[in-house]
């Protein structure tokens, strides 16, 4: 076998030696359009850096420099040194400015998303394009929307007190104007910005254990440290006394919010008996929707359910869940939440 292969091998070895020579020779015969262009280009360029001066290259001694650095006069702080941002923001003009929030050394830094929630993936790939398509309103090219003038009325009359007076408040009840809805584009597709869990336990005024259990459950459900709140007023009907701790909230954003919503829609809500859905009368006209869960519904959350025995069953609280969206009206917010999987029932609040 070896003998039979020998001539082949010698031939291939010979060829491999020969080949580079052939390649060296070849370019002289080939002519590309770009190869001639190189001759026409000026060798000088504004970006070219002149070589270092004679004096600099003679005195350059990296070893000595590093030794010098090591001995006494240090250019760099010791390796253990760690930059600490200022504790307080002292204004734009202060020389010591805090680093951006995305910097790990910042005090406000939150380590990035550790997972890509399925709900977020579904939103990006399916829900956002569908909502965009459903709510798209076409305007022919060249159409310019008429400019909106002042929505608040002025004070008209002869009274001298009307001069320089602030504009009149909007008509009807309510002290604020409703949000304007801009035409739908690919930049303002409504999305979920925040989810808030709020649990009020008035029994906590007598026994703080209620508040602690509520805080623990809210924390377990939401993955966020719960915040406690005091009652701001005396409300006799609700048995509230001013200044007493009565409620617990948790605000979830981005990753946590998506995980929570997916859990709610896929695990908790389908297991509630006789659940009709979110009341369609909810919604504040600015894209936020709220609904409530009773204590036995809260107990259906998987985090509570796995160690149900760890909580006194009578102290498990109910809660309100507010889903905040980018939408500027109730219709858009409801469409988004329906697409996510929250059914609505009853009279619509538009």
């Amino acid at each position: 076998m070896a003998l039979r292969e020998l001539p082949l091998r010698t031939a291939s070895a010979f060829c491999s030696h020969v080949r580079p020579v052939a390649q060296l020779v070849r370019p002289s015969f080939r002519r590309n359009s770009s190869s001639e262009a190189l001759y026409g280009i000026e060798p000088w360029s504004p970006f070219s850096v002149p070589p270092p001066s004679e004096e600099l290259s003679k005195t350059f001694d990296p070893v000595a420099r590093s030794k010098l650095r090591r001995r006494g006069k240090r250019e760099l702080p010791p390796s253990r040194y760690q930059y600490r941002p200022p504790k307080y923001y002292r204004g734009r003009l202060h020389p010591h400015q805090p680093p951006p929030v995305s910097d790990p050394s910042s005090r406000l830094f939150q380590p990035g998303p550790f997972s890509l929630p399925r709900l977020e993936q579904t939103y990006q790939s399916t829900i956002a394009p569908d909502v965009l398509t459903l709510t798209y309103q076409h305007y022919p090219p060249g159409y310019r929307a008429p400019k909106l003038d002042q929505r608040l009325r002025e004070w008209t009359g002869e009274s001298p007190y009307f001069r320089n007076r602030p504009l009149r408040p909007p008509r009807g009840r309510g002290d604020h104007l409703r949000l304007l809805t801009p035409p739908r584009t690919f930049r303002n597709v409504p999305k979920i910005t925040k989810v808030t869990i709020h649990s009020m336990v008035p029994e906590a005024q007598e026994n703080s254990a209620h508040l602690h259990v509520a805080g623990m459950i809210v924390q377990a459900i939401s993955n966020i440290r719960a915040t406690t709140h005091k009652a701001r007023h005396n409300v006799v009907g609700w048995g509230l006394r001013e200044g007493k701790y009565v409620s617990v909230t948790a605000n979830m954003e981005r990753e946590d919010a998506h995980h929570f919503l997916a859990k709610l829609v896929d695990v908790v809500l389908p297991r509630i008996k006789e659940w009709k859905g979110v009341p369609a009368s909810s919604g504040d006209g600015a894209g936020n929707m709220t609904f409530g869960l009773t204590p036995d519904q809260v107990a259906l959350f998987p985090e509570v359910e796995v160690n149900y025995d760890a909580y006194p069953p009578k102290m498990i609280p109910g809660c309100h869940i507010t889903i905040q969206t980018d939408a500027t009206n109730n219709k858009d917010a409801r469409l988004l939440l329906q697409a996510i999987g929250l059914p609505f029932f009853g009279k619509l609040n538009d």
Partner: peptide, 24 residues
């Protein structure tokens, strides 16, 4: 067809429940 598309009939009622399934 353009006018029919811009009517937005049936958009604002309710999304079918079968649609709202998270991708797996």
């Amino acid at each position: 067809l353009y006018r029919a598309a811009m009517l937005k009939r049936g958009v604002w009622g309710s999304v079918p429940v079968e649609y709202a399934r998270v991708q797996t």
